[in-house]
Simulated assay, not measured.
Amino acid sequence: MYNHEHARQALGHVSIAPPDPCWPIYFSQERDLLRPLLGSIADELQHYGSTAVAGLSAKPIIDMMAPVASLTQADAFDAPLDNAGYRRIDAGFFKRRFFRKTVANSDLAYHLHLVVAPDWPIKNELLLRDWLIQHPEVARAYEALKLELASACGDDMPRYTDGKTSFLHKAVNDARRSQNLPIEHDWAE
């Protein structure tokens, strides 16, 4: 069962770093490390989130996502991922499994989401990534919001994430409309 305090402690302090051109390289290297564990699922692994948007300040977290057929399939990766340094975290999701790996002596971390996504590859997170890349003015407004929230939320990552919700919902629906997709009403994950 989701526990805000446990998630807050597991996710750590909110810190925004300047853009790092190495973030896409870190993703590629990590995908290669995960390939033997995830098999063909690694072929679908996508880099998303702010570190996937060139020139955007972000938490130094490489967000990765891949589709799975079921949560049972995702659960089968618990032990291999744990052995690779990924800890499963209950962040309140019920259509995905969420894993976090930290890098010793660094602010860098990896978040791996294994999602039951019948609408892959038009998953909202991927649409948002592409929308931010295509609309730098939206990316800059998002960056400003993140900096403001990081200052206000400090060590409460779930509160920081909640603070971005309305902005992200609007941006996702703008991206969906631009592709003649229905707007999203069901944000439950």
Results as ranks from 00 to 15, higher is better:
P21E: 02
A76V: 07
A117W: 01
I62F: 04
A150K: 07
V116D: 10
S151D: 13
G163I: 10
M65Y: 05
K123R: 12
W187K: 10
G85K: 09
F93C: 12
I61V: 11
L112K: 07
A175I: 04
Q9A: 14
R97H: 15
R96N: 13
L126C: 09
A139K: 01
A141K: 10
D43F: 04
S50M: 01
F27Q: 00
G163F: 06
L108V: 06
M64D: 00
I122Q: 14
W131R: 02
T102H: 13
Q134L: 14
I122R: 14
H113T: 04
A150Y: 09
P19H: 03
V103C: 12
F77G: 01
D63K: 05
R177Y: 08
R159D: 15
G55S: 05
A104F: 06
R97D: 08
E189R: 06
E125K: 08
P21C: 02
L45F: 03
L126T: 02
M157H: 13
N3S: 12
E5P: 03
S50F: 00
A76P: 08
I25F: 06
S151T: 14
P118C: 12
R177A: 14
S178Q: 09
G85M: 09
Y2F: 15
F27M: 00
Y142N: 04
R88F: 11
C153Y: 12
I41D: 03
F93Y: 15
W23D: 00
A7E: 10
N3D: 15
A17E: 03
E30R: 06
S40D: 13
A150C: 09
D156G: 10
V14L: 07
L127P: 03
T51K: 00
K95R: 13
A104R: 10
E5Y: 13
V68Y: 02
N180Y: 10
A52I: 03
S106K: 02
V138N: 08
N105G: 09
G39F: 10
Y110A: 02
K146G: 05
R129G: 01
